[in-house]
Design a protein around this nucleic acid. Structure first.
Length: 209
DNA sequence: CACTGCATTGTGGTAATTCA
DNA sequence: TGAATTACCACAATGCAGTG
């Protein structure tokens, strides 16, 4: 897709842009790429990269900045990641507290932030987890706090906006029903069965009508 | 505080030069 | 000989200092 010269220039441009956040011009690139090229030659290569959609110019007479596609290419093919030393990896692993699932994400985000010197955002991967228990708490007229406990002990909270006001008794009844019928089943299966039951009830009501 | 002039940086276009 | 590269020019955007 790109020759070595274009790859070096693209890598230098993106690294420079990451470092100072400003568009990178041909003269800067000419000096910092390590290639013995004039700014005009660099511009020709930059024009090719822009045509490929890897970089773009925010406005006339500004330098170039990487596009999302350029960043993706950089991460996939140009970025060189030095593997962690064994003792460093062990230190990081110890700090994550893998035996405490509630703390893993926040500690991982903190570690990421410390290592990168940027804001750290960590998302848990989707995985099949068992449903253990659910509870609904009435907050106001049409707002309900949903508390879900998973099989591994992790707890998720969600605030739900409902179409009508549900009494405390109705919410307890709903929670009891779900806990009695679905405890110990995977979340995806719980969702599938609930949808199936709702569809079945709807069909019954339609038939009765 | 708005305006002006200047310096700097960067661009596109084009002619000249180099080199395989 | 033609593609690649370089040098140069005119122009645009921006920052900064000076001025009223």
């Amino acid at each position: 897709m790109l020759d070595d010269r274009a790859r070096i220039l693209l890598k230098t441009l993106i690294e420079r842009y990451i470092a100072d956040g400003h568009p990178v011009g041909s003269r800067t690139l000419s000096r910092q790429s390590g290639l013995d090229l004039s700014p005009a030659t660099v511009r020709n290569v930059m024009a090719d990269l822009e045509e490929m959609g890897l970089i773009t110019s925010p406005h006339t007479s500004a330098g170039r900045i990487p596009t999302p596609r350029g960043f993706r290419f950089f991460v996939d093919t140009l970025l060189v990641v030095e593997p962690l030393k064994v003792d460093e990896a062990e230190k990081l692993h110890d700090r994550l507290h893998p035996d405490e699932p509630q703390r893993v994400l926040s500690v991982a985000a903190s570690l990421l932030s410390n290592l990168s010197h940027f804001a750290g955002v960590v998302m848990a991967p989707r995985r099949a987890t068992m449903f253990r228990q659910v509870e609904f708490l009435r907050l106001s007229d049409r707002r309900v706090l949903l508390i879900i406990v998973a099989g591994d002990g992790s707890v998720q909270n969600r605030i739900l906006s409902t179409h009508r006001d549900y009494s405390r008794d109705e919410l307890v009844e709903a929670a009891n029903y779900i806990n009695a019928h679905f405890a110990g089943i995977e979340f995806d299966e719980v969702r599938r069965r609930l949808q199936s039951e709702l569809a079945s009830l709807r069909d019954d009501i339609t038939a009765l009508m």
